[in-house]
Design a binder for these strands. Structure first.
Lengths: 232, 232
DNA sequence: CGCTGGATTGAGGCCGATCAACTTCAGTGG
DNA sequence: CCACTGAAGTTGATCGGCCTCAATCCAGCG
């Protein structure tokens, strides 16, 4: 990881598409006006990519790192609306509202491709293939987090782990990966307390469904997890 | 209402755009290949517009009536994923999955414009204005139901009522409207029991925040509702 | 080494679910 | 018009899952 970021910083003219080979987003970066593609931004841990009520101007393709998008509620509490992984796009929601509604901060050192929405529109117009690709990505975003509606804590967490595994799959080997966010953040997103997440993870660990050591996790029985997510 | 449907049945060649003047969807219907626009479908109460695992082929612009989209979980229980109102579009989620993931049934007699996705793509390509409009609608859909993440039952219900009011606004006068779905369905969508919905509505009625008589509701203190939705 | 923030684990309390009884509504046919 | 009937809504009592608060543990890091 560290190496990747170094490479980027040292060699800005090299094909940065390397970082966007995940999912379908690389096409976007490649096809949206080459001269703007160079606009890569390096984001530090805890740094904000954009803030609420800021005018919507750019879409951001994440090439490295993980982001969380959250709002501060009236009671002052943080409410996490979603996590974003390499190859995914931040900012779609703001097209409608014309300003960002959330704060997007990096959970770790990150790298994003900044795509001005106007350039995006022009490119999409020119290239029919790109248009379909974008509709596809858009539609995909609509399907994200469908498991949030699940009834029990166990169902939601099981589905979340499978989701994490899938969305991190391209960067991490096999079924083992590093959970990039805190228990508290997972709980916040799933509408559970951090303690509940901790308890359930311990329980899954004891029943050999996952191997767990702090942030390092390995899914041992994906089928069982799927059953749990389905509510069996 | 009855009158509208009658008019349509009797006069299929007249400007059906009349039924789609809500929100931004009318443009879609008008601009997507006139010869396909005529494909209006009359849907009966409880009839399904599409079923899970059916191949994705059409988008549906709702011109009249209300739909609910739901899945049947492993435990056999129904899980409502969303409600769709006149002027809104059904099917966006299926672009990614290439098959519908939910059942969409009409809560009342309904009328929809069936738009083949292929024709949709062609039209969007031809007309840049339409493209932006669609991205806007798409983005809007991403923002729907953001209140589902709210912590308490009261917060979610308050937000739901405001949402209902807004999305039905074009068909119903003022702040009074008919709740088109059952208490059970509201509860299902908000992850609450029908009894809880009933109790909370009664409570709101007693505290003069709403006027309520079965399915007929009038919002008396929208500001209070907004405060409740925000968690104050 | 000690410090610090996150993670774990336990005890008690509350919100909302479930179960059940009753009421009201809407549709049907006499 | 009314009686009948099944579905939906209301209301009350009890129960359980998850939250809150708190103490302790642990890994990472200067």
């Amino acid at each position: 990881m560290r190496e990747c970021l170094k490479l980027t910083a040292e060699c800005p003219s090299c094909s940065l598409a390397l970082f966007c080979v995940h999912h379908q987003a690389e096409m976007l970066v490649e096809q949206v006006r080459p001269q703007t593609v160079k606009k890569y931004r390096h984001i530090l841990r805890h740094e904000a990519l954009f803030l609420p009520n800021h005018k919507f101007q750019n879409l951001y393709v994440i090439s490295h790192g993980v982001f969380k998008a959250y709002q501060i509620e009236a009671d002052g509490k943080e409410r996490i609306r979603g996590f974003y992984f390499p190859g995914e796009i931040l900012g779609f929601e703001a097209i409608y509202t014309d300003s960002y509604r959330v704060t997007a901060t990096a959970l770790s050192e990150a790298l994003v491709c900044e795509i001005p929405y106007e350039h995006f529109l022009e490119s999409v117009q020119d290239k029919p293939g790109l248009q379909q690709r974008c509709l596809y990505l858009f539609s995909k975003q609509l399907n994200v987090g469908s498991y949030l509606a699940a009834a029990t804590a166990l169902q939601r967490l099981a589905a979340f782990l499978l989701d994490l595994s899938e969305r991190l799959h391209s960067t991490e080997a096999g079924t083992q990966f590093i959970i990039p966010m805190s228990r508290q953040d997972i709980g916040n997103y799933l509408r559970l307390s951090g303690e509940t997440i901790s308890r359930l993870l311990s329980q899954m660990h004891k029943s050999k469904i996952i191997a767990l050591k702090y942030k390092k996790i390995r899914i041992l029985q994906a089928k069982r997890l799927q059953e749990m997510a389905a509510g069996c």
